[in-house]
Amino acid sequence: MSTPPNIAQKAPFAVEVTEGKIYFWCACGMSKKQPFCDGSHNGSPFGPVQYTAEASKKLFFCGCKHTGKAPLCDGSHSKL
């Protein structure tokens, strides 16, 4: 059985992203800089997910860490 990620929050994080900028989404749920990685995953089976913004706009990054469309929210938090 695999280790589940920590749930940072049971709602998405709304973030204004900048076109062309690279973001590293926290997949473990332990980062203090949610929804982005701060290296807290070290020693765990998790690693950050790289995301490059295609346009400057508001996106909703997953906060529960159970999305099927990482790093973006797919509504999985509603089933936890």
Rank of each mutant, 00 (worst) to 15 (best):
K58L: 13
G20M: 08
P5D: 08
N42G: 12
S40L: 04
V49N: 10
M1Q: 13
A53K: 07
S76E: 11
E16R: 06
G29L: 07
A70Y: 06
G75K: 10
V49Q: 14
I22K: 15
V15W: 00
V17W: 03
H66T: 10
S44Y: 07
M1N: 15
V15T: 01
G20W: 07
Y23M: 08
C62I: 12
G47N: 12
A70I: 06
P35C: 05
K32F: 06
E54I: 05
F36K: 11
K65G: 09
K33I: 00
P45A: 07
K65R: 15
G75P: 08
H41D: 01
I22Q: 15
I22V: 14
C73H: 06
H77P: 00
G39Y: 05
K33G: 10
A55D: 13
S40P: 07
L72K: 14
T18P: 00
G68W: 03
F36I: 02
A11P: 01
Q34L: 03
A55C: 05
K58N: 14
A53L: 09
M1V: 15
H66E: 04
K32S: 15
G43C: 10
A27E: 10
P71Q: 04
K65F: 09
Q50F: 12
Q34S: 12
C64L: 07
F61Q: 01
C37T: 00
F24V: 11
H41F: 05
S76W: 10
A11Y: 09
G63I: 04
D38I: 04
Q34E: 08
K21T: 14
P48Q: 04
L80A: 09
Q9K: 14
K57H: 07
G39V: 08
G75A: 07
Q9T: 02
P48S: 10
F60H: 15
A27T: 13
C37G: 09
K65L: 10
P48C: 04
G47F: 09
Q34C: 05
K79P: 00
N6L: 11
G63E: 10
S78E: 11
K79Q: 13
H77Y: 11
G39E: 02
C64I: 08
A11V: 05
G63Y: 01
C64F: 03
I22M: 12
C37H: 05
N6D: 11
P5Y: 04
F46R: 03
F46I: 06
A11K: 12
F60V: 00
F60C: 04
K32P: 07
K21D: 15
K33V: 03
G29F: 04
G20H: 07
S40A: 13
H41Q: 05
P45K: 00
D38W: 03
G39T: 10
H41Y: 06
Q34A: 14
